[in-house]
Design a binder for these strands. Structure first.
Length: 301
DNA sequence: CTCGATCCCTGGACGC
DNA sequence: TGCGTCCAGGGATCGA
């Protein structure tokens, strides 16, 4: 499940061999995850891929319109356009020799001018792809929050501590921070000893500062280890990541907490599976679970 | 503003 | 072996 470190890993892999290549042709399979499939077919052929960037969980292939001397197209995309790619849950974007048969669930093939094909495969098609000119891309990106790796302590506190939503929901909310998903939310909350159901506004200043620090630390380490491969994440070279070996909470239900040996719990918080240590990450007052327990105790008396 | 529910989709795990 | 059922999860959307 590609989150910031996994998408960054893919971006770095693609950067090794994709920039400078020209797209010769486009072949589409299923297209229900593409904003405007016809736009890809119409505009991608002939474009040069100038750069590969990451924005939150998105990959951005920066395209330049036409080689010098060729006529600029009339629809205004000559100023610059991008292919926006979201890997969803199971998306992969990687180059293969064009002669090599396509993997199952390959839905987009971009034939490059060096005999390779940049292929997008995605069994569940939870991803997204869109061809966007500069203005449209800019409009898309304004909806997103701060980059968790770059956010200052002040901005982080401002975005979190003013909110009455659960911290887990805030970490997952791409308009608050862009790029954090379920794994790294749980890992950072465990490291910061904060219960996922705590409200943003309930965090103390030092807690918010700690959370930002451990989140950045975890994301950076995960990038170095080329991400977490839980079920099917593979980078642009088809290789799995290694960070799943360092998970302290995510996926560890019933196993001992690395700090205190207490069994890790799994609960649904903000609609998502959340793994946490009930001892290191105490439930907030008013938490449903805690409230229920208290009512039970009262009844017993 | 925040919440839960629902949908999207397929493969893998599990039960019989 | 081969079904059926449930579940995972990011994100959009809708109603409470």
């Amino acid at each position: 499940m590609p989150e910031l470190p996994e998408v960054e890993t893919v971006a770095r892999g693609l950067r090794q061999s994709i920039p400078g290549r020209r797209i010769l042709s486009v072949t589409l399979g299923k297209t229900d995850f593409i904003d405007d499939p016809a736009a890809l077919e119409q505009h991608l052929p002939g474009k040069k891929i100038d750069a590969v960037e990451r924005y939150g969980k998105f990959l951005l292939l920066r395209l330049s319109a036409v080689p010098p001397g060729e006529r600029v197209s009339a629809n205004g995309d000559a100023a610059g356009a991008s292919l926006l790619v979201h890997l969803g849950m199971t998306g992969q974007l990687a180059p293969s020799p064009a002669a090599q048969p396509c993997e199952k669930h390959t839905h987009v093939c971009l034939l490059l001018d060096d005999g390779r094909e940049l292929r997008y495969t995605d069994p569940r098609r939870f991803g997204r792809m869109a061809y966007l000119v500069e203005a449209a891309l800019a409009a898309e990106l304004t909806a997103f929050g701060a980059d968790p790796l770059e956010v200052s302590a002040e901005e982080f506190a401002a975005r979190i501590c003013s909110r009455h939503a659960r911290i887990k929901a805030l970490l997952l909310d791409q308009s608050v921070l862009r790029g954090v998903g379920n794994i790294y939310a749980d890992e950072s909350l465990w490291r910061a000893k904060i219960h996922p159901a705590r409200l943003g506004a309930q965090l103390s200043g030092p807690q918010a500062a700690t959370l930002r620090k451990v989140l950045q630390d975890i994301l950076q380490k995960a990038i170095v280890m080329r991400g977490s491969s839980i079920s099917d994440f593979l980078d642009a070279n088809g290789e799995p990541g290694e960070y799943q070996r360092h998970h302290r909470a995510y996926g560890r239900e019933g196993k001992g907490c690395y700090r205190c040996k207490t069994a890790i719990l799994r609960a649904i918080v903000a609609g998502r599976s959340s793994y946490f240590c009930p001892k290191c990450q105490p439930a907030p007052r008013g938490d449903k679970r805690g409230a229920r327990r208290k009512r039970k105790e009262k009844r017993r008396k």
